[in-house]
């Protein structure tokens, strides 16, 4: 009896030692994985200030936010009308223009310039670029078309162009992020 007890105790120590080695292994793997996630300097809250005073109705500019393009577009009354004429509930990603702009500033459409399909930069912000059949943006990679409120209307993209967090610091300056 005492003999088997002794054997069991010994087995227990070996199992415990191997388990400790296992715990150590996991402890080593955690930092090795976590080192690949974004570093503090990348995550540091960054913001971009954009002067929009020179953007005429119908024009758009590209700015940079978090190493990605941002489209700032000054919509014409006609474009606003076109966007509002669509029944939002019939869309793939139902949103109205008002939901995608700031109150009282419905003509300023600010979205990320990143197609929600696979990340290409859609055309339509630059002077003379194709705006696609819905007059907004057109992604040449796989043919996603966005309307004047940058909502997805046709093509493979799953959702509307993302609206980043932003605020108007003044009538002519927008702070993104």
């Amino acid at each position: 009896m005492a003999e088997t007890e002794g054997v069991r105790r010994r087995d227990f120590i070996n199992i415990a030692a191997v388990s400790a080695a296992g715990v150590a292994g996991v402890g080593i793997v955690i930092p090795l994985i976590s080192q690949m996630s974004a570093s503090a300097d990348v995550l540091a809250a960054s913001s971009t200030e954009i002067d929009i005073s020179a953007i005429q109705p119908g024009q758009a500019i590209k700015a940079i936010f978090r190493k990605q393009p941002v489209f700032v577009r000054n919509l014409t009354p006609k474009e606003i009308e076109e966007a509002n004429a669509v029944d939002a509930s019939s869309l793939r990603d139902p949103q109205t223009l008002a939901e995608r702009t700031k109150e009282g500033k419905e003509n300023w459409l600010i979205t990320m310039g990143v197609c929600t399909h696979l990340g290409c930069v859609p055309l339509g912000a630059g002077e003379g670029e194709v705006k696609g059949e819905f007059g907004g943006y057109f992604c040449p990679c796989h043919g996603s078309s966005y309307d004047t409120a940058a909502r997805i209307r046709k093509g493979p993209a799953p959702s509307n162009l993302e609206v980043p967090e932003y605020e108007f610091s003044s009538d002519t300056v927008v702070k993104i992020g």
């Binding site: 930092p31 090795l32 976590s34 080192q35 996630s37 570093s39 503090a40 300097d41 990348v42």
Partner: peptide, 13 residues
């Protein structure tokens, strides 16, 4: 230096 200061566990590595 950036690795040591900003990367997760960079100092340990």
């Amino acid at each position: 230096e950036q690795t040591v200061r900003d990367v997760n566990w960079g100092w340990a590595m």
